[in-house]
C-alpha cells in the first residue's frame, strides 16, 4: 500500500517545521559511550525509520527526546522546548520498547488515565475500536496477552492526538496479523499529517512505514536518506562482505550451510563491523516483498534469516 507522504524531499531540504532535534549529543553510561556527537532533526510530516544494531544508541536517543534522561553534552529540543519540560511533550506520543502495563488497572481505565494528560484526546471507546481492543475494555491489563499489551501501548501513544509519535520497536513479538493492524493505524495517522519516528530491527517494517531512514551505529548517524538511498548504500557493502569472507573460507562455508541462524543472535563469526551488519540488513531487504534486487542465493542466510520468519500475507 502506498504511503501518502507530505514530505518526500531529501532530508535537509525540508521546509516543514522541525518538531524534534538533537544537536551534537553525547551521552555515556559509565565508560560506555551510548551517543557520540549525534545530530538529527525530524521535520513535520516525515516518517523517520531509525535503524541500527543492538547497542547502537537508538533507545538512548529516544530517551533523551522523551525527556527521560539529560544529555551529557549537546542539546535536545522537542517542539522548540527542552524535553524535560512537560509542556514539550503535550504533542508527543510514545510507545516504549519494554512492554509494561499497570497490572491491576482495567484497559479502559488505563486509556482514560493517559488521555487525561492531553487537551483533546481521542475518546477511549473509539481508540479501543480502532486497535481491536474494544472487547477487552473491562479486563485488567495484566490479563492481556503480550500482543494485546503491545497494541495497547501503541494505542496509548496515539490517544493524545499527537503531532509526533515515537515508537521504539513497536511490533517486536507480534504476529503477522497484529503487526499489520498496527501498521495500518500508523499509516492512517501519517496520512492525516502525523509525524513518525520508529526504531526497528526489521528493514521490512521501516520500508512499510518510513520515508526516510537514519542508520545509527556506535552513537552516531552513519547514513541518512530515503529508503532507496540506504538500500543502494548497503548494496555496496555486500561486496565488502564477500571480499572479507573469501579470506576466511571456513566461515564462508558456515554462511552457506542450510542451517538457519536464530534471528536475534549475531552469527558467531560476525565481529561488530558496520560492513557485516549492513550485509545482514541487505539480506532482509532483498527477501522482503518490496525489494527489487535479487541477491545470489549464497548470501541468503543471516540473523534475519527468512527461514524462521513468517511469510507475508498474500
Amino acid at each position: 500500500m502506498p504511503v501518502p507522504a507530505p514530505t518526500l524531499a531529501a532530508p535537509g531540504e525540508s521546509t516543514t517545521p522541525v518538531l524534534a532535534a538533537a544537536t551534537d549529543v553525547t551521552k555515556s553510561f559509565g565508560r560506555a559511550k551510548a551517543l557520540n556527537g549525534l545530530s538529527l532533526s525530524i521535520n513535520a510530516g516525515e516518517a523517520v525509520g531509525l535503524l541500527g544494531p543492538n547497542g547502537a544508541g537508538k533507545s538512548t536517543l529516544i530517551s533523551l527526546l522523551c525527556g527521560l534522561r539529560r544529555p551529557d553534552a549537546g542539546s535536545v529540543e522537542m517542539f522548540g522546548r527542552n524535553p524535560l519540560d512537560p509542556k514539550s511533550r503535550l504533542q508527543l506520543g510514545i510507545t516504549p520498547q519494554a512492554t509494561s502495563v499497570p497490572q491491576t488497572l482495567k484497559l479502559r481505565e488505563t486509556v482514560d488515565f493517559v488521555a487525561a494528560h492531553y487537551p483533546e484526546p481521542t475518546p477511549t471507546a473509539e481508540l479501543l475500536v480502532r486497535f481491536g481492543l474494544a472487547d477487552m475494555a473491562d479486563k485488567q491489563c495484566g490479563a492481556l496477552s503480550g500482543g494485546q499489551q503491545r497494541r495497547l501501548l501503541v494505542a496509548l501513544a496515539l490517544v493524545g492526538r499527537p503531532r509526533l509519535v515515537v515508537l521504539d520497536e513497536p511490533t517486536t513479538g507480534l504476529d503477522v496479523d497484529a503487526r499489520e493492524t498496527l501498521w495500518q493505524q500508523l499509516r492512517d495517522y501519517r496520512s492525516q499529517g502525523g509525524t513518525l519516528l520508529i526504531t526497528s530491527h526489521y528493514l521490512e517494517e521501516i520500508q512499510a512505514l518510513a520515508s526516510r531512514v537514519v542508520v545509527v551505529d556506535r552513537g552516531t548517524v552513519i547514513a541518512d536518506g530515503s529508503v532507496d538511498d540506504i538500500r543502494s548504500h548497503v548494496a555496496i557493502s555486500k561486496v565488502t562482505l564477500e571480499a572479507r569472507c573469501r579470506r576466511r573460507p571456513s566461515t564462508l562455508g558456515r554462511t552457506r550451510s542450510a542451517r538457519p541462524l536464530r534471528a536475534p543472535e549475531r552469527p558467531p563469526w560476525s565481529p561488530r563491523t558496520p560492513t557485516r551488519r549492513c550485509a545482514g540488513w541487505s539480506a532482509t531487504a532483498s527477501n522482503s516483498a518490496a525489494s527489487k534486487s535479487t541477491p545470489p542465493p549464497s548470501r541468503k542466510p543471516s540473523w534475519h534469516s527468512p527461514a524462521i520468519r513468517k511469510p507475508p500475507r498474500p
Binding site: 522523551c66 511533550r89 508527543l92 510514545i94 516504549p96 519494554a98 512492554t99 494528560h117 501501548l153
Partner: peptide, 10 residues
C-alpha cells in the same frame, strides 16, 4: 518500566 513510561507523559 511502566513508571518510566509515565515520566514521558506531559
Amino acid at each position: 518500566p511502566w513508571s518510566s513510561y509515565l515520566r514521558t507523559l506531559p
